[in-house]
Amino acid sequence: MDDERINLSLRVNGATHRIEDAWYFETLLSVLRYRLALTGTKQACETGSCGACTVLLDGRPINSCIALAADVDGDVTTIEGYSPADGSLTPLQEALLAAGDVQCGYCLPGMVLAGSAFIEEHPNATEDEVREGMCGNLCRCTAYLSMIEGIREASAR
């Protein structure tokens, strides 16, 4: 049915995108990956449980898999927009790499974006603060200790 398709516009990584013929039930994750080819945002649980699809909306982390694209009003930042354009790493990315928090890497874009918002609000974070503040991101390689170390290290910089 024709009315199952909608047009919408999204601001992603500083640019405005006009999306034609999206499904009315389409998620932000789906638009980012399959219409804008921003595949750094990962698709996993699709129920807001794992955090792999985390993006920033006006600077705050949300699960893009359970955000209706039609209901996203604000500036979206994906890992492509967060990472420096010259290919270098942010201090947080460097700290996570140095701590050894990179195995399969699937959770990492979400970890980095959630972590970036976390350290913004928690300078010199304690381990307990990291454990609570990062509870929305799962790592199936279970590299949690190096993740905690990397985020603590980055929050102290």
């Binding site: 909608i6 999204l10 009315y24 209706l68 209901d71 996203v72």
Partner: peptide, 14 residues
């Protein structure tokens, strides 16, 4: 702004 009032019969944003 993403949407104004109604995007289609299936997504309504009052």
């Amino acid at each position: 702004m993403t949407v104004t009032s109604a995007m289609s019969g299936r997504v309504v944003r009052p």
